[in-house]
């Protein structure tokens, strides 16, 4: 292949690639947008490669725009140091408030304190920190309650008997542990249900797929899979369908549009919705309240209950929320 043909092929592929992808401008790591009231709210989330956090960021940013604020949005990739740098940047830019999905219950305390000491109120969403009185609010979904909901529905679907495997999240993530504990606190009561395998799939869809493949080798007659989040549930479901075992019961946790679509197709049997639309918007509304009046008027810690999604009520789902 000469360079010419090489370039020719390249150009062809390029034009096809451009057609295939929606046109968008390159985005810097920190995106800023001006508001109408001259004030800015910073929104920091752990990742922009996970639809969950993308949705979380979008709900918060949209609410801020609606209330007239400019936004400064970035991801700290779960790295406490990056998080601290972002918070320092936000302080230097004189933002009026920070909405943060933090990078670790212990590691984030000093970062939140840095902002608070500089007079910038912090509103935590999705995950708590192990300290009280520093952040103005900690609005999280009740992971333990959600996991119990998931476990209860899973047991019901299984007919309270049979073998199952559990896929857990990234071992270093607090939510992975809390969800496993929540689900097991329910499942341990059913003597006829037996957990034959428990593996981490690191919240990852491809790892969920390959781990499920291997677990199927060891336990070909397994009846159910309880997953700690939606991406792992989707990976496990794909592996089960590939192995022609569509009857194995899979349940997930998050309430992502992909799993909801799977429930509608009759594949995944149940999911637990984390009310991220609600808590993201709530954090911004409370920040607005605090900026205007100096207080939120609500307790610091606010736990929002998760909602079960089943084939029966899946019609009420819209974009990470349930119509009531």
């Amino acid at each position: 292949m000469t360079l010419k043909t090489l370039l020719g092929t390249a150009c062809m592929a390029a034009s096809l690639g451009v057609l295939a992808l929606p046109a968008s401008a390159a985005t810097p790591s920190v995106q800023s947008q001006k508001g109408t009231n001259g004030k800015t709210i910073a929104i920091f989330v752990p990742s922009l490669s996970n639809p969950f956090f993308v949705a979380e960021e979008k709900f918060a940013a949209d609410e801020a725009t609606k209330l007239g604020y400019g936004t400064m949005v970035a991801s700290h990739d779960g790295n406490a140091e990056t998080q601290l740098n972002l918070i320092k940047t936000a302080i230097a830019r004189h933002v009026s408030a920070i909405v943060l999905d933090n990078a670790g219950a212990d590691e984030s305390i000093s970062a939140v304190k840095t902002a608070t000491d500089a007079g910038v109120p912090v509103f935590l969403i999705d995950r708590e920190i192990n300290a009280k009185g520093i952040a103005k609010a900690q609005i999280v979904s009740n992971n333990f309650q959600g996991a119990q909901l998931e476990g209860t529905q899973f047991a019901k679907l299984m007919g309270y008997k049979g073998t199952y495997v559990e896929l857990t999240g990234l071992p270093s993530d607090t939510n992975a542990k809390v969800r496993a504990q929540g689900a097991e606190s329910v499942l341990n009561h059913f003597k006829d249900m037996k957990m034959v395998g428990k593996q981490t799939a690191d919240w990852s869809q491809s790892k969920g797929f390959s781990v499920m493949q291997t677990l199927l080798q060891a336990h070909p007659d397994v009846k159910g899979v309880i997953a700690g989040n939606d991406t792992m549930a989707l990976g496990a479901e794909a592996a089960l369908l590939a192995a022609h075992k569509p009857d194995v019961i899979v349940v997930g946790f998050d309430g992502s549009p992909d799993v909801v679509a799977s429930i509608k197709k009759g594949q995944i049997k149940a999911d637990v919705l984390q009310p991220i639309a609600v808590f993201s918007q709530k954090a911004v509304i409370e920040a607005d309240q605090y900026i205007k009046t100096g207080k939120t008027g609500l307790p610091e810690k606010q736990e929002l209950n998760c909602i079960l999604i089943t084939p029966e009520n899946v019609g009420n789902y819209t974009n990470w929320a349930m119509k009531s």
């Binding site: 992808l21 929606p22 956090f53 993308v54 992909d258």
Partner: peptide
Amino acid sequence: GRGLALLSNNGSTFPF
């Protein structure tokens, strides 16, 4: 490459 992949559907997947 990773950035372009994320940009292509705003961080979401193309399911089914």
